[in-house]
Write a protein that binds this DNA or RNA. Structure first.
Lengths: 242, 242
DNA sequence: GAGTGGTCTAGACCACTGC
DNA sequence: CAGTGGTCTAGACCACTCG
């Protein structure tokens, strides 16, 4: 029912669109259960199998999480298993370490050309810049500079950031209703500048891993641009190629 | 039919196992079409939908490639689209560049403890070590040191390597019937040693991206261990986080 | 037109959770 | 026990490719 001709989109893909829209509108919040497959099938007037296929895709993209016998849930950054989805750093020797995010600075500014293009906003619109230090087992490992769309994070400042527990994305999710869904990272090796070297307690000029990231929300629009400098003396960046 | 009780494995997963086994045995070679879904369903005495689900999973893992109207094919590294699945380097400014693999050295040795553990072979068994330079648009970008299981690459030497066209994995696939299926990479930033600096035409001590990789075949056994040092002056390593 | 994969449906039954 | 997701089946029809 309702199938277009030029760009053919199967029913389950349309259902996915409707579900994504509902997620975006906040009808079901991160961590909550969405209605059962049979309920959704009735609501959209399709068979249960079609809803199922839509949910399958969204679960594969980490938008939803299925739990047999319990239901299907909106994915959340609070889930400890989701923590390392966006933080691919692991200690070279040894086990899991506790991590701590230390906010250093937070101020508002106007978007220059490059930031405006990356975040898909007008040049001159308000952005927020955050600098923070990430510690593993008490030792500084990453220094981040983060650019955010100002309109999406009203009231964000250094004091608010200090309330943060858990990951930054988990914090954005509950505090501002902004959920990061996917990201693109560009990695390079660079020499430590003076300031970063001081923060990371390494020598100026020593090699650091530069991780540049653009993160997107549901509607595939960029929300965050960040650049992290990682000391890889005791940690490496893990990646699986399938 | 035939469902175990302790570790329950659904039928389609068992079918996947049988298909993987057939791939591993070389019944269908990379690039070839496998039998149609209905044929496979008859062969395994299951419904077409069950075969379909098995193939779906394997296509998601890049073991098979579906082509509507034509059939399902064994994935191959010859496919230009598969080229950047294991080579995540892209030029910082500009378009696609031609790449060239220049073999430098190739010799046989006995596996030490670390290599033996990584490649899951006995200490002292034969391994092959390859050094090669990777050029983009004529300029050196990566210097690789590659450790291979000697038993899987009989007759491999520098002369043979010079016949290589396309990617190294594509070469291994046709020449030795060894197909890399997935890999794990560990990235760090390091300072260039004298020799690497010379090859990459950078200054000694300048920051390089170290990419350590273990690659696996169908049976999930490690086949290759390699370490690449990348000059990220004009290229970055691209990664998508979903 | 014949053959392939892709979609959609409907129904039966299994596995897991929680009351 | 009822309710959820997970599996398996069978059949109808659509979209694409190729001769």
């Amino acid at each position: 029912m309702a199938q277009e001709s030029p760009t053919f989109s199967p029913l389950y893909r349309q259902i996915r669109g409707l579900l994504t829209q509902a997620l975006q509108s906040g009808e079901w919040r991160p961590g909550e259960a969405i209605p059962s497959e049979t309920e959704l099938a009735q609501r959209f007037n399709v068979s249960q199998g079609t809803v199922r296929k839509a949910i399958d895709e969204m679960a594969a993209d980490n938008l939803l999480v299925r739990k047999q016998g319990k239901g299907t849930f909106v994915a959340t950054h609070h889930d400890p298993r989701a923590f390392f989805r966006f933080l691919r750093l692991a200690p070279i020797n040894g086990t899991i370490e506790t991590s701590q995010s230390v906010p250093l600075e937070c101020w508002r500014a106007r978007a220059g050309q490059e930031v405006a293009r990356t975040l898909d906003v007008e040049v001159g619109s308000q952005i927020i810049i955050v600098r923070r230090l990430l510690k593993f087992a008490g030792k500084p490992v990453v220094i981040d500079e983060i650019y955010l769309r100002g309109d999406l994070f009203p009231g964000l400042n250094l004091d608010v950031l200090k309330e943060q527990q858990g990951s930054l994305y988990s914090f954005f999710e509950t505090r501002f209703g902004v959920r990061m869904v996917r990201a693109e990272e560009r990695l390079r090796a660079v020499a430590a500048d003076r300031q970063s070297a001081d923060y990371l307690e390494v020598q100026e000029g020593s090699p650091l891993l530069s991780v540049e990231r653009v993160a997107y929300t549901y509607d595939d629009k960029p929300v965050e641009w960040r650049r992290g400098l990682c000391s890889t003396a005791d940690h490496y960046y893990l990646n699986n190629l399938n």
